[in-house]
């Protein structure tokens, strides 16, 4: 059952209270992902369930590891 069924649009009220667990920044819905405003981690929505785990998130382009991302953010 791991087929890529399209995610249901997430309720705006729920999206408003959701935050990136790494940066606590708000998220925006884009396709099957919820993307953090700060840091750009993309959290997948699998079978309609948002997966809000840092280790499962897709890294933004040009960042090779989670450690590198943390360093970049922490260094600001």
């Amino acid at each position: 059952m791991s087929s890529t069924t399209p995610s249901h649009a997430i309720d705006p009220d729920l999206l408003e209270m959701l935050r990136c667990p790494l940066t606590h920044s708000p998220l925006r819905a884009e396709g099957d992902f919820l993307i953090a405003e700060v840091g750009g981690l993309a959290y997948p929505v699998r079978d309609g369930i948002p997966v809000m785990l840092i280790e499962e998130a897709k890294l933004p382009a040009g960042v090779e590891s989670l450690e590198a991302l943390k360093e970049k953010l922490g260094g600001k």
């Binding site: 959701l18 990136c20 667990p21 369930i49």
Partner: peptide, 29 residues
């Protein structure tokens, strides 16, 4: 969570949602 969501559907609930997350790093404001 798949089991939980099955229950939400079976109960016809419109007032429940589920998220996969770590209780020690909650994805909420």
């Amino acid at each position: 969570l798949r089991e939980a969501r099955k229950k939400i559907r079976e109960q016809g609930r419109t007032n429940a949602s589920v998220f996969q997350g770590d209780a020690m790093r909650l994805p909420f404001t």
